[in-house]
Structure formats: structure tokens, C-alpha cells
Design a binder for these strands. Structure first.
Lengths: 340, 340
DNA sequence: TTGTACGCGTTATCAA
DNA sequence: TTGATAACGCGTACAA
């Protein structure tokens, strides 16, 4: 763990000169440059980033807060993968901090990133309210941006997806195809995303002059098995339906499984639409339609804007992303089935 | 961004006293304690972790290097989720750094973590050789541990899984059930895990006096679609087989899909075994057997040992984890199929 | 029980 | 072109 001072001694110069050589700023003769590089090599010197960051109040790190309830499967890995790739291309590092499972812990995670003097903080919130996030943005001097929420005050500090519109779109597509009795399996209702998708569903029904029937709305917990259980509840209730919209693909998969077990033909008798469009699902079940959530686009955009801010640029106002409904009911190669 | 000095002024004490109050070390009268807390509150003071870490040469952070080729799906999210949870329980933070796609970049990632003065570094290597990792462990003063590789020299600094044994086990199980022609779909052969699983397969065949036939070994790329393509190749080659072992579940899923499309009955005509035991797969396809890879156990153990080292403990020598074959061929509720 | 003074390893501002 | 030297914000022996 040699220090800059040791390198300076070895090279017979002052540490100021070593610093100049390393940073490339200021004039240094080629001769001493060579000596310094040689000394660095010999000493196996490595700059201490803590000291550097302290002195410069920069860190080349961006912090990302994600609640660990999201730490499951493709959605999360796509998020992280995209974030790391994008930041790396800009020579910065990603620091991932767990927002755990409460607003208080999300606050702490943000605070930690701030205390570490990250250059910027990105929040994928789960429990914090939009109003509090607006306050947080005011509170911190360093740039803070929010993914997957529309803020009230700092509209240019957030990137969001129109989940309500997605719910509307999916429902409308089914109505246009002649469905009149459409069930909805929602995810946990403490998730704003779940609330918005459900409200889009209700609005589309109302807009089409169809009734919103509570007996056709069941709650799941985002997992495949909970989707199956929710479908069980729907079947047990006895109300007929010709389509199910599930608030994510996992639950949609569970729903299709349960329908299949109950002898219901998909999509001939029942259409199913999920959300997120995870890759393996349509491979297995070509009949599963899905609304693609633009996670990777959003995270990519939020990082671009963060970098632009840090480099002295300004923020875009174009922050609303839309989902794309991928309708697969009519695909040619048919659903997956395994012969016994 | 008030500093400790400002708090000290406001409270009418020295910054040493403020430091004592914050750390809880040393004697401070209740009276001044109250004053200090009040001043901290008023100033909205937050300690600068860079300065603290620099002064103490501790960071309460553990770095994790993972190559982004792993950033896909369940395996990765389980890894991160487990790591974050475990570290958090110990009051430490996880710093995730991308090892990208070469040995050089893996080296840089480790170097970066070191330069940041992380308390410890965990590597889930993809390109670095075990010999180089042994050197790396010698090179750094701070604890470095390796997941998913058996090191030669520093055996107590690694946690690994017996992938060769897993491959052997899966193959043997099929042989015991009467299979004689077993195909193998391997993942990318630049992955040691892939190499080991394949070699276990070969060894089991040999041990049972069965020939290793190259025409029954096909290479995929870990994805479901590549598994389907590999199966296509097997079918086209025309050699008969009654079982397929795929080096991960995704490829196994692809294989089953392709078999199904080709009108082959699973498991009646062909048995399929995958690796990793991802949750959604058996839910969809009860007939898919899988060898559970103990990722979460391994990462959990490596963090336990890291923490134990940091807290002055010593390392365990019991570092080999075994996989568990979950054989589902005979399950009662049958494979997934969707009626048209 | 409290304060002084120095060190941690850099960067940055002056002079020289 | 180079070298002192003062920050950066905190921890901590050592004194008081």
C-alpha cells in the first residue's frame, strides 16, 4: 500500500509532481515523467480513491436504490445489467444499495449514498411517496433522479412509464376483439404500479360502457403460484369470463397453468395477457400476450440524463415512456404442450 | 453539508467531543451529549464517510465482482439478493462491480474495489484462472474470497460446488433408470462450470461401461432458444436417444419445447434433466428434472466466512457444496399442456 | 470529562 | 517546470 509520497521519494520529486503526472494536468517534463512512471511501477503504487474523492468531492460513482422485493428474476437483472453497462461506457461505477422493505429504509439507503458522496443517486422507489421524493430532490445538492414514478414538482427528475395507459391498452385490445367479461389479477396493492394498471383496466371498461365487476378482480402476489391461486378463486366464484389480464407475466403463467388444469382451452376459450414480456414465457407459451414494460429503456434514459447533468448539461422534458402490447393470441405455432 | 467542526462550534465543544458522542467511545457527560445531539439536529449534520473511511481505513463495505454475462435471470438475482440480505444483517453494504467480459476487466474490477478500500472482496470469476486468483489473494492484504472455484493454494478462501459430481449424479440417475443413450447439451465451453458438468457426464458413462459418443454432445449458449437449436441438431443427426441432460434449465426448457414440437413425448419417450432448478420451470413443466445449484448457499457461506475473518475469526475448511438432483419424471400431475 | 494536535492520502493554490 | 503547503473531514493518542 505505497502512497504518493513514497513514489515521490523514489523518483526524487515532490508529491505535487507525481499528482500532476497522474492527472495529466499541468506541465511536467518528459524526463521527470518517465522517472515518476518508473517509480510508480516499482512501488506498485495505486491511488487511494478515498483520499482522492475526499479531496475532489467527486467519486465517479452513481448510486442506485432498489427495494429487494424487486430482486427477483428477469426484470431486476435487466435493470442492473442495463445500468452497469451504460455507466461503464461513461467510465463510472454503479453502487447498488438495498432499499429493503420500508420507506424508512429507502430513506436510509439514499442517505448512505449521499454520505458516500456519490456523484448522483438514482431511486427505483417502492415505498417513498412522490411528494417525499420531491422534497428529497430539494434537500440534496447532488443530482437525484427517480425511475418509474411521475413526480409532481421535479418533472424533469423522473422517468416513468404510463402503467395506467398500459392497463387501459390491454383491456381495450381485448374489448376490441369482442371480449365482454374480462377478469383482472392484480399484484400487491401496496405497489403503485399495480394500482395504476388496475385503474387503467377499470377506466377502459367504463369507457367502453362495460361494468366494473368486483367479483372479476382478484389479488395475487406477483408469483406464478399466486396467479394460479387467484385463477382458482375466479373459477370458484363461478362468474364466467373469456379473458384474464394479470398484472405481470409470472401470474399470467400461473393463470394459464390453472386454466389448463381445469380443462379450459387457451386461447380458444380464454385469452390471457400479462405484463413485462419476460423472454422465456412466450417461448414456452406462444399464446401468452404481454405488455412490454420498458425497464431497460427507462434505466438507460435516466442514466443518460444523470450523466448529462453531471457533465453540465441540462435535463430533457421528454420523460414518459409507453408500453407496447404484444398480442400473441393469433400466433401460428400454437401453445406449448407436452405429450405424455 | 455541514462538517463536524461546525457542529462543534454550535455546541460550544471541540470536534473531538463530537466525534466521541457519535462513536460512543470515550467518556462524555450527559449534559454535553445533549448539547451535541441538539447541534447535530440543528445543523442537519451527516458524517462524511469518505473522510471517516480514510481516517480509519475501514469502510463497512464488501465488494462483489460478477461478470455481466451472468446478469441474466434468476441465478443472478438470487445471488445478489442473498448477498445483500446477508451483508445487511451484519451492518455492511454491498458494492457490485461488473467484471465485464475478459480476465483483464475482472482484474480491473478487483483493483477498483481495492482502491476504494473495501473491507473485503468477493469474486465470482468467469475468466480469471485459479492460479491467478491464488496470486491475487497473496497480493492483497484485505480478505479476498472466491465463489464457484476450487483454488489450489488458498483452499480456505474459496467456496465451490462440485459441478463434476452434479453431472455425474444426473447421468448416473438416468443410467440407473435404464437409459443407455443419453444426449448432453453443454453451455459455452469457456465456462468452467460447463466443462465440469460435461466431464461428470462422460465419467458416469465410462464408469457404467457405456460409450461416450460425440454425436450425442451438442453445444448451446445457455438460452432456451439455443437449447431448442441444439435439440434440433440432435434430431437431425438421427442417432436415437432416450434422455437429454442440458447444462442449465433454460436450455432444458428449450429442449423440451423442441421435442414437443417434433412430436416426442416427454417423459414417456425422452427424459430431460436441467441444472439450477429455477422456480418457474418446474411449475410449468412438472416433468422437468433439475439439479439444484446451491448458489444462495454458497454466497451466504462466503459472506459468513468473510465477516468472520473481518471480525478476527478464522476460516472454515468445509467449503465444498453439493448439488441435489431433483428427479421429477414420475410426478403425478403431469406436464403442462394447453388445449387449443 | 474535555481539548489539542497530528495523521489519513489526495488535490489544488501559490510561489519560486 | 517544480515544490511547499494548505485544504478535504474525520479519528485518536496524548495532555490537560
Amino acid at each position: 500500500m505505497s502512497t504518493m509520497q513514497e513514489v515521490a521519494n523514489k523518483a526524487g520529486v515532490s508529491k505535487a509532481t507525481v499528482s500532476r503526472v497522474l492527472s495529466g494536468k499541468g506541465y511536467v517534463s518528459q524526463e521527470t515523467k518517465d522517472q515518476v512512471f518508473k517509480a510508480i511501477e516499482e512501488a506498485g503504487y495505486r491511488p487511494n480513491l478515498l483520499a482522492r474523492n475526499l479531496a475532489t468531492s467527486k467519486s465517479m460513482c452513481i448510486g442506485l436504490v432498489v427495494t429487494n422485493t424487486l430482486y427477483n428474476g428477469n426484470y431486476f437483472s435487466e435493470l442492473i445489467s442495463q445500468a452497469a453497462k451504460k455507466l461503464d461506457a461513461n467510465g463510472r461505477q454503479l453502487i447498488l444499495v438495498d432499499g429493503k422493505h420500508s420507506a424508512e429504509e429507502e430513506r436510509e439507503a439514499i442517505q448512505f449514498l449521499h454520505d458516500l458522496r456519490c456523484d448522483g443517486i438514482i431511486i427505483y422507489p417502492r415505498f417513498l411517496s412522490v411528494d417525499e421524493m420531491d422534497e428529497i430532490i430539494d434537500k440534496y445538492k447532488k443530482p437525484v433522479m427517480v425511475v418509474n414514478r411521475k413526480l409532481r414538482k421535479h418533472q424533469s427528475h423522473c422517468i416513468y412509464c404510463d402503467h395506467k395507459g398500459s392497463g387501459f391498452q390491454a383491456t381495450q385490445a381485448l374489448i376490441e376483439r369482442g371480449h365482454r367479461n374480462i377478469a383482472f389479477i392484480t399484484g400487491s396493492m401496496d405497489s403503485p404500479t399495480a394500482i395504476e394498471r388496475l385503474s387503467g383496466y377499470k377506466e377502459a371498461l367504463t369507457a367502453a360502457g362495460l361494468p366494473v365487476r368486483d367479483s372479476l378482480i382478484v389479488q395475487g402476489k406477483w408469483s406464478a403460484s399466486s396467479g394460479a391461486a387467484a385463477t382458482e378463486t375466479l373459477l370458484a366464484a363461478g362468474d364466467s369470463f373469456s379473458a384474464i389480464i394479470a398484472s405481470n407475466d409470472e401470474m399470467a403463467i400461473g393463470a394459464m397453468k390453472r386454466l389448463n388444469d381445469a380443462g379450459m382451452a387457451v386461447p380458444a376459450q380464454v385469452s390471457v395477457i400479462g405484463f413485462d414480456n419476460i423472454p422465456t414465457a412466450p417461448f414456452l407459451i406462444p399464446a401468452l400476450s404481454s405488455v412490454r414494460d420498458p425497464v431497460s429503456d427507462m434505466i438507460s434514459e435516466v442514466i443518460s440524463q444523470m450523466i448529462s447533468m453531471l457533465d453540465g448539461g441540462y435535463l430533457s422534458e421528454q420523460n414518459k415512456f409507453s408500453s407496447v402490447l404484444i398480442f400473441r393470441d393469433s400466433v401460428a405455432d400454437g401453445p406449448f404442450s407436452v405429450k405424455k
